[in-house]
Design a protein around this nucleic acid. Structure first.
Lengths: 249, 249
DNA sequence: ATAAAACTTGCATTAAAACGCAAAATCAAA
DNA sequence: TTTGATTTTGCGTTTTAATGCAAGTTTTAT
């Protein structure tokens, strides 16, 4: 069997079954696994498939272009995302909510990071999937169309059984008097349980939302360990929160 | 044998078998391999075939194997998706797996459809989210990177508590002897429970996967209610499955 | 923590390609 | 037909490509 012919066969198999195993191909085509590996290597270099330990995956299935480009506060959110990403260490268990700020955080994570993320946010999960070394636990329940995260008693109960190192939340409103507030009852249930189930709670928000109030109470300032905004930690807007004992990044 | 005559013969062979081997041709025509090589060289220069180490491949086969076949498979999958979409009625509860075929099915659903979809496939869920009237239940558990669906005992148990109207599965391999087979143990657990928890099971597959086998058994043909391929229901390839009592669409 | 599987690297072996050259075949015109 | 020019072919020789094997390392799973 000619080399190109063999590679065409492999490509065909990969497109057909979404994945191939080196050992299987080796037996099917009757060449050594080394040769298969070299073929996969070549095909992977030209982007025809994605090589993984033990075989390869379909490239079409792997690259998942996630949208989101018209967010006005893009660079601000990136700054927030980078600060938050610096808090995550290898081996950590992290509960995360949804929202564009958390999404940006997900994009800022280094690809070498080996951590476990637990979330019910479909866009956030899609983003975590692009990181090869991240373990993802999906919180199942009914999907809220507006917020794109799963909500409901099931998800809340599931979170109850977890004790995570960090809880990373994008928040909707925060002020010194009411603490963190929100406008979606279902989402608030999730956030409250996430906060209760984590050792540390990190809140992400653009400074615009500081000193605004929403109808539903999420938690008091005392529950928050860190607050991350695009502003310099010394900014006067953040002083009241620093005085309340929150670490400002 | 004249040079022109010989080259015509080579071209004929290449178009017939999609490939030729220099050594074989040399023996058949009784000329040295050098001569064959020179012939292949010439034919390759005029684009009549593609020369590779050890022989040559058909230009048609080599030129556009990826692009052509991918687009081809795309329209095939759309045809499958449309057929499957026609089975879904308002008010139904539907369990679905992952895979590109199911993804195509999701895209074919009419936006007016009011149904509830239950799935652990992140790409499929992302697709369902675009449909305004569809309720989505996310099956939570550990996310398998390779298949992009949630897998594990938790997800299986959750499915156990459901009795859905339809189960729509993209399948990896099917044949009359072994039934439906797959290559991912975790995914198979999910599929089996989905089948058990549904009144009707619909299998989607492009015809290429028919009469192929994968290592892990999913279910026998008796569990399948409908089989949907891009082929006409009367196609002879499908006859054995029709005879086994499966509705062919 | 340990063992098994998969990967990397370098090397040896074999097959194929490239190249130059000379013999043989083909062609064109005398 | 003969002859000379031209093309085609086969055969060494030298390079290059493909493949499998072995030793050592990394990754994965138990």
């Amino acid at each position: 069997m000619l080399k190109k012919e063999r590679q065409a066969y492999i490509l065909h198999q990969v497109n057909l079954h979404n994945k191939v195993v080196s050992a299987t191909l080796s037996a099917e085509i009757a060449v050594s696994e080394d040769t298969i590996r070299r073929d996969l290597q070549e095909l992977s270099e030209t982007g025809k498939l994605v090589k993984v330990h033990g075989g390869a995956l379909s490239a079409a299935f792997y690259d998942n272009p996630v949208m989101e480009s018209n967010v006005y506060a893009q660079t601000d959110k990136q700054r927030i995302g980078n600060k938050a990403a610096s808090l995550v260490k290898d081996g950590m268990f992290i509960l995360t909510g949804g929202g564009t700020t958390v999404l940006e955080f997900a994009r800022c994570l280094p690809s070498s990071l080996k951590a476990t993320f637990i979330s019910g946010s479909i866009p956030a999960i899609s983003e975590y999937m692009n990181h090869p070394n991240i373990e993802i636990i999906v919180l199942g329940d009914k999907l809220s169309k507006t917020s794109r995260i799963t909500v409901g008693a099931d998800a809340v109960n599931r979170i109850k059984n977890i004790k995570a190192d960090l809880c990373i939340l994008g928040i909707n409103a925060i002020d010194t008097e009411n603490g963190v507030t929100d406008n979606d009852w279902d989402v608030v249930q999730i956030k409250q349980q996430m906060i209760a189930s984590s050792h540390k709670t990190i809140c992400l928000t653009i400074s615009e939302k500081i000193n605004t109030v929403q109808p539903i109470h999420v938690c008091g300032l005392d529950k928050i360990d860190s607050l991350i905004t695009e502003l310099d930690p010394g900014h006067k807007l953040l002083k009241p929160f620093k005085d309340a004992g929150i670490t400002i990044l």
